[in-house]
Simulated assay, not measured.
Amino acid sequence: MNAFITNANYHFILKQATNAFYGAQNTNDEGVKNALRFSCIDKAQAIFEELEVEQGQLIGKIFHIHSEEELEAFGAKLQEFLIPFPLVTDATIKKLFPKVKKLKLPTLSDEEIKQLVFLGWNDTSAQKKFIIAKHDGKLTGIQGNFTPTSKKGICAFCHQNERVGLFKADIKTKGSTDNFRAIGQYICADSLTCSSNVQSTNRLDAFIHELKS
C-alpha cells in the first residue's frame, strides 16, 4: 500500500481515533460505543475523495482500539503511509523568497521536517514571519509582518487556542501595479506547534490563495 496520508490527514485521523477511544470510556452501553466508533471512522474516511480497500481497512482499525497502547500503535501504523513534507533547502529558500537576503532555515530535525503540514519561522529582528507550504501542488512561500500578542487566541490556520500574533501581508490591488492593501490573520506564534495542530489545510490554502490571486 502506497503512502496516501498527508500530515494534516494524519492529525485528523488520529484525533478521530482518540475521540473514539476516550469517548467509549464514558459509557457502558456497547451500542453507544460502537455507534461512536463507526461515526469517527466515517469522519476519518470522508476526508478522502476515494479510498482503496486496504486504505479504508487501515482507518477502520479505529473500531478495535481498546487501550492507550493500541491507540499509540495505530498512530505509528498511520505514519508508515505518510506523504512526507517536501525537502526544503537553502536553494528552495532563495527561489521562494528571492528578494530576502541571508534568509536561513530554522533548525529542525529531518523527522520534524518530514511531518510538517507547513514550514514557518519568525525573524524577530525584522518582526516578520515566513511560511512555506504546498499550494496547488507545489511549494509556495509567503511572508509578512508578525506582531505577537501576550494572550492566547484561536489560530486562523489550526483553529486551536494557542499563543497567537497578527500576521499581515500586502497584496496588490486589482487593476493597479502600484497600490497595495494589507490582509491579516491571527495565527500561532510558534509555527511548529501550529503545524502539528493542523487537521485540515483549507484555511491556510484560502489565505495563500488570497495572497497569490
Rank of each mutant, 00 (worst) to 15 (best):
Q160T: 13
Y22D: 05
S109H: 05
Q57E: 15
T107H: 14
I59V: 06
Q160K: 13
K174P: 14
D123Y: 07
K152V: 11
N2F: 14
L116T: 04
F74H: 03
Q79D: 15
V88E: 10
K101Y: 09
T177D: 14
Q185I: 04
I83P: 00
T18Y: 09
R181W: 12
D123G: 05
K104T: 12
F118H: 11
L58K: 00
D90R: 13
F21C: 04
I59Q: 02
S109R: 04
F167S: 03
E30G: 10
G137P: 02
C194V: 05
A46S: 06
I83S: 05
K43W: 05
V164C: 13
A182I: 11
V53N: 13
K114P: 00
G60A: 03
D205Y: 03
Q115D: 10
N26I: 09
E50Y: 10
S67M: 03
S39H: 14
I187D: 02
E49Y: 07
T124N: 10
T6L: 10
A24I: 02
K151S: 11
I59N: 03
S39I: 11
C155M: 07
G165R: 08
I13Y: 07
E162T: 14
L116C: 09
E68M: 11
L82E: 03
E210Q: 15
A3N: 15
F81W: 05
E111D: 15
D170Q: 15
T92K: 07
T89N: 12
C155Y: 02
Y10G: 01
K138H: 14
I132W: 01
G23S: 06
Q57N: 13
S67V: 07
H159W: 06
G184P: 03
I41D: 00
N2C: 11
I154C: 14
V164E: 04
I113Y: 08
A156N: 09
